[in-house]
Lab assay of single mutants.
Amino acid sequence: KELVLVLYDYQEKSPRELTVKKGDILTLLNSTNKDWWKIEVNGRQGFVPAAYLKKL
């Protein structure tokens, strides 16, 4: 499993997105899109802007 660090808080703006908090370490599911990465948070899957995340 690949992990990502959340660099900035992000509030979901659609049902396909997820809310994340700065400092969270989460599972990366897909990073093929350069702008939006798919991650998992508490069993939910969704997208967060790639600029808000850093691969560990």
Rank of each mutant, 00 (worst) to 15 (best):
K1W: 11
K1M: 15
K1F: 14
K1D: 14
K1T: 12
K1G: 15
K1C: 06
E2T: 14
E2L: 14
E2D: 12
E2C: 07
E2F: 13
E2Y: 11
E2K: 09
E2I: 12
E2G: 11
L3H: 11
L3E: 09
L3K: 08
L3Y: 10
L3N: 09
V4W: 04
V4F: 03
V4T: 02
V4I: 07
L5V: 12
L5D: 01
L5Y: 09
L5H: 04
L5W: 06
L5A: 06
L5K: 07
V6R: 00
V6P: 00
V6A: 08
V6L: 01
V6K: 00
L7M: 14
L7F: 02
L7D: 01
L7T: 06
L7K: 06
L7C: 05
L7Q: 04
L7Y: 03
L7V: 07
Y8A: 12
Y8V: 10
Y8P: 00
Y8C: 07
Y8N: 12
D9L: 02
D9Q: 03
D9T: 06
D9S: 10
Y10A: 01
Y10H: 03
Y10T: 01
Y10L: 01
Y10C: 01
Q11T: 14
Q11R: 10
E12D: 09
E12A: 15
E12Y: 07
E12N: 10
E12R: 15
E12H: 11
E12Q: 13
E12F: 09
K13R: 13
K13Y: 03
K13G: 09
K13E: 08
K13N: 10
S14E: 10
S14G: 13
S14V: 05
S14I: 05
S14K: 09
P15R: 03
P15S: 14
P15V: 11
P15F: 11
R16E: 12
R16N: 14
E17Q: 14
E17A: 07
E17G: 12
L18F: 13
L18I: 11
L18K: 04
L18P: 01
T19Y: 05
T19F: 06
T19K: 07
T19D: 04
V20S: 01
V20F: 03
K21R: 13
K21G: 06
K21I: 09
K21P: 01
K21W: 10
K21H: 15
K21M: 11
K22H: 08
K22L: 05
K22F: 05
G23F: 04
G23C: 05
G23E: 02
G23R: 02
G23W: 05
G23K: 02
G23T: 01
G23Q: 02
D24V: 05
D24G: 04
D24Y: 06
D24T: 11
D24E: 15
D24Q: 13
I25G: 01
I25F: 05
L26N: 04
L26V: 11
L26T: 07
L26C: 07
L26Y: 13
L26F: 09
T27K: 09
T27D: 07
T27C: 07
T27F: 14
T27G: 08
L28P: 00
L28K: 01
L28R: 01
L28W: 02
L28H: 01
L28A: 03
L28C: 07
L29M: 10
L29V: 15
L29E: 03
L29R: 05
L29T: 06
L29Y: 05
N30R: 06
N30Y: 08
N30Q: 10
N30L: 09
N30M: 09
S31Q: 11
S31C: 07
S31A: 14
T32V: 11
T32R: 10
N33M: 09
N33P: 04
K34D: 15
K34A: 13
K34S: 12
K34H: 15
K34R: 09
K34W: 08
K34I: 11
D35A: 12
D35N: 15
W36R: 03
W36A: 03
W36Q: 04
W36N: 03
W36H: 04
W37P: 01
W37I: 01
W37A: 02
W37K: 01
W37Y: 06
W37L: 02
W37G: 01
K38M: 12
K38T: 12
K38A: 10
K38L: 12
K38S: 10
K38P: 01
I39D: 00
I39L: 13
I39G: 04
I39V: 14
I39E: 00
E40G: 10
E40L: 07
E40C: 07
E40Q: 10
E40F: 05
V41P: 00
V41R: 12
N42C: 08
N42Y: 11
N42T: 06
N42V: 06
G43F: 06
G43N: 11
G43S: 08
G43W: 05
R44D: 06
R44K: 14
R44Y: 10
R44M: 13
R44H: 15
R44A: 12
R44T: 10
Q45I: 11
Q45Y: 10
Q45V: 15
Q45K: 10
G46R: 03
G46W: 04
G46F: 05
G46L: 05
G46Y: 04
G46K: 02
F47W: 15
F47E: 05
F47S: 04
F47M: 08
F47I: 11
F47H: 06
F47C: 06
V48D: 01
V48F: 02
V48Q: 00
V48W: 01
P49C: 03
P49E: 02
P49G: 02
P49D: 02
A50R: 09
A50M: 04
A50Q: 07
A50P: 06
A50S: 15
A51R: 09
A51F: 15
A51L: 12
A51C: 08
A51G: 13
Y52Q: 04
Y52A: 14
Y52H: 12
Y52L: 15
L53H: 00
L53Q: 01
K54R: 11
K54Q: 10
K54C: 08
K54L: 15
K55Q: 10
L56A: 05
L56S: 03
L56K: 04
L56E: 03
